[in-house]
Design a protein around this nucleic acid. Structure first.
Lengths: 204, 204
DNA sequence: CGGTCTATATATAACCG
DNA sequence: TCGGTTATATATAGACC
């Protein structure tokens, strides 16, 4: 919404990025507060600036409270699929631009795993993983068209109803990954099958 | 931003309120995702609809993670030059491994898209990928602690902005994070870690 | 309800001091 | 880096299905 249309990808210029962050951060906070007021609801936002500074917004004053409400809620979906389609969509746009470069970087990086320039490398992998997610996401979308009449789009925003269903104590294998890839994968699948009902059809 | 300027107060008509919520909710999620992509930052949003439905957004896939980052901020910075090169190196090797596996999975998965039973299966992969991303995110975060440094790097700068619904644009400084954690909140956090059996600090 | 379709209200990218 | 200013890009209130 400015003089020019911004490409949906990481802003390279650090200064510009910071400036944009500052502005948009305020914009989101404003939007959040408006939503809270207009709809009389609880809203919380947590953002980290490019430089690591934290900004939060909570309609009731404390982010903790809203997150607690979030936590105390039946948590079937926590640990479910990634938050939403839109973000992945944006991500996709971003990768569209960086796709080729990413491969080059990856290749370039390949031989020197030992002496990686940590941050950069981690970023590369993150992107790769994100890319992988997208593929899955896309597949999911395609698949979603076929299945029954469950709310095919409900999974998108992680929107869940207040009513609960199964106590699915979700968790995440966290750091025990690495060598146990298949195992964690199976566990993830297990969890998913356990909570499928809720996940697939949170529709009212 | 509509045919008329809406007064900034609770919308009385329940239906209208719900509709507005639905629209604005999407708007915020979009804004949040854009911010995350454009500025390459962590963003999390938690919203409750007028009817109690929960909607979340997290640039890295899980609100918990960003929230935990929010909570553990002090700890995060406490460790000092944690940049255990060896650890990171190992970490990245693992990530590399994961990446390769993911690629296989994705490849193996792609051709059978039509056979996917439901959206759920995609969800399984998604969750897996998401958790993988989280680890990358953590590595990235840790690595960033040491190298990155500029005007806003001191621990003291990491403050919380408890902005409230003020029509203005300035964001007021709240206070430092750690000391403000309520007891109940800390308990909730602990419960979380127990449930998820995961530590924010991958060093473990 | 969910979507669609405008007419308007807002958010902001690029600039400038 | 930090605030304003202005031209454009977006978000959305209301109306209609």
């Amino acid at each position: 919404m400015g003089r020019k249309k911004l490409a949906m990808r990481r802003i390279e210029n650090a200064t510009t990025r910071q400036v944009t962050y500052a502005k948009r951060k305020d914009g989101i906070v404003k939007k959040a507060s408006e939503l809270a007021v207009l709809c009389d609801t609880d809203v919380a936002v947590v953002m980290f600036s490019p430089t690591g500074r934290l900004t939060t917004f909570a309609s009731n004053g404390r982010v903790e409270d809203i997150f607690l409400r979030f936590v105390d809620r039946p948590d079937e979906l926590r640990g479910g699929p990634i938050a939403n389609e839109e973000f992945l969509s944006e991500r996709l746009k971003q990768l569209k631009y960086e796709g080729e470069m990413l491969e080059k970087i990856a290749t370039y990086y390949e031989p020197s795993v030992e002496k990686i320039n940590t941050v950069l490398e981690a970023g590369v992998y993150q992107q790769f993983l994100t890319s992988a997610i997208q593929r899955v996401q896309l597949s999911k979308l395609q698949a979603a068209i076929v299945p029954m009449d469950d709310t095919t789009t409900s999974v998108a925003h992680h929107t869940v109803n207040q009513s609960r269903m199964s106590p699915g104590k979700d968790d995440d294998e966290g750091g025990t990954m690495g060598p146990h890839l298949s195992l964690s994968f199976l566990e993830a699948k297990k969890r998913w099958e356990k909570i499928r009902n809720v996940t697939v059809n949170p529709t009212s």
